[in-house]
C-alpha cells in the first residue's frame, strides 16, 4: 500500500502544482516577465470563491467561474496599473518584476483590511471529502475533481493558444512584439487578454486550493510563489506543457524523497535538480530552442 499510495500522492500534488503554475507560465511566455503578483491574484480568487459561497449562497460549481472572471478582471487592472506604463516606456524587465512585487504587497494588504487575518474556510461538506471505498489506495472525491478540472483547464488553455486566432496573436507578440505590430496585431489587447486568462487560471486555482486545503488567508499565496517559479523553470520557461511537466516532476521529487526517508532535504533535492537542469538544459525539460529572455 505504501508505494502505490505515494504514487497517488505524487500525482495529486503534481496536479496542484501545475494548476498554480499555468497562469504564471502564460504571462511569462507572452510578456517575458515574471509576475510575482500572480500569487496575490490567486489568493483573491480563493476569497472571491469563498464570498460567493458564503455570502451570495452560490454553489461551489458556480463560484469557480465567477472567481475566474473576477480574478481575470483584477489581473487586467494589475496590468493597467503595474505593467502597461512600464512597457510603454520600454523600461527594463527587472523594473516590471519589482513593480509586480509592489502590486503584490498592495493586493495582500487590501485583502487583509477587507477579510481580516484569521484563516477562513468553505463550509464543511461543500464538496464530498470522504475517501472512496473499495480501492487499494486512499483518494477523496475532491482530489479527483481537482485533478480533472486541472487537466481540463490545461487542455483548454493549450487549445486556446495553439488553435485559435487569439492564441496565434499571443504567440506572435511573444515571438516579437514589433513584428506583431507590423502584422496589424494590437499588442495592447493581446497583453490584456493574456492577463485576463492568467488571472482566470489563478482564480480557479485559488478556489480549488481553498477547497482542497480549506485554509484561506491573505497570505496563502506566499507558500506557492517560489514553488510556482521552480515549477515553470524546471518545465521550461514560457511553455504551457512545461508548467504541467514541471509540476509533476517537482511533486514526484518531493514525495519520493520523503518516501525514501529524506524529508529534511526534499527542498534541497528540488533546488539541486533545478540548478543542474539550468546548467545542462536551460530550456527546461520540455522546451526546445534556447531563447534568451530577461
Amino acid at each position: 500500500m505504501n508505494i502505490t499510495q505515494q504514487i497517488v500522492n505524487a500525482i495529486w500534488l503534481g496536479g496542484v502544482y501545475s494548476l498554480f503554475a499555468l497562469g504564471y507560465a502564460l504571462v511569462f511566455s507572452v510578456l517575458g516577465v515574471l509576475n510575482l503578483a500572480h500569487s496575490a491574484v490567486f489568493m483573491w480568487g480563493a476569497f472571491i470563491g469563498l464570498v460567493a459561497v458564503t455570502q451570495l449562497n452560490v454553489s461551489v460549481w458556480a463560484a469557480i467561474p465567477l472567481a475566474m472572471v473576477v480574478s481575470g478582471v483584477i489581473s487586467i487592472v494589475l496590468d493597467v496599473l503595474a505593467f502597461a506604463p512600464l512597457r510603454r516606456r520600454n523600461a527594463p524587465r527587472i523594473s516590471q518584476l519589482i513593480s509586480s512585487i509592489g502590486a503584490a504587497i498592495l493586493l495582500v494588504n487590501i485583502a487583509q483590511l477587507i477579510f481580516g487575518t484569521q484563516p477562513q474556510r468553505f463550509p464543511l461538506g461543500s464538496i464530498p471529502s470522504d475517501p472512496l471505498e473499495g480501492l487499494p489506495i486512499r483518494i477523496t472525491p475532491i482530489q479527483i475533481i481537482i485533478l480533472l478540472v486541472a487537466i481540463t483547464l490545461m487542455a483548454v488553455l493549450q487549445y486556446l493558444v495553439v488553435r485559435t486566432r487569439a492564441g496565434q496573436a499571443m504567440r506572435a507578440v511573444a515571438f516579437n512584439q514589433r513584428v506583431a505590430s507590423l502584422l496589424g496585431i494590437n499588442s495592447g489587447n493581446v497583453f490584456r487578454m493574456t492577463f485576463f486568462l492568467a488571472g482566470a487560471l489563478a482564480g480557479a486555482a485559488g478556489v480549488l486550493f481553498g477547497l482542497a486545503y480549506n485554509t484561506i488567508t491573505p497570505f496563502m499565496g506566499d507558500s506557492v510563489a517560489l514553488k510556482g517559479l521552480t515549477v515553470i523553470v524546471l518545465g521550461g520557461l514560457g511553455n504551457i506543457q512545461g508548467a504541467v511537466v514541471g509540476g509533476f516532476v517537482v511533486a514526484a521529487l518531493e514525495v519520493f524523497s520523503i518516501a525514501a526517508g529524506g524529508s529534511n532535504y526534499r527542498e534541497a533535492f528540488v533546488f539541486t535538480l533545478l540548478f543542474l537542469i539550468l546548467l545542462f538544459r536551460p530550456q527546461g525539460l520540455v522546451g526546445q530552442a534556447a531563447e534568451t529572455r530577461a
Binding site: 515574471l34 517560489l226 517559479l229 521552480t230 523553470v233 520557461l237 529534511n264 532535504y265 527542498e267 534541497a268 533546488f271 539541486t272 533545478l274 540548478f275 539550468l278 546548467l279 536551460p282 534568451t292 529572455r293 530577461a294
Partner: peptide, 23 residues
C-alpha cells in the same frame, strides 16, 4: 558554471543556490 547562464535563468539558478545554502 552558473555565470554561463543569462538573465532569468541565472536568476533562478542563483535563487536555487541560496535555498540550498539555507537548507
Amino acid at each position: 558554471p552558473v555565470l554561463r547562464l543569462r538573465d532569468i535563468y541565472l536568476a533562478i539558478a542563483t535563487i536555487g543556490f541560496g535555498e540550498v545554502v539555507r537548507i
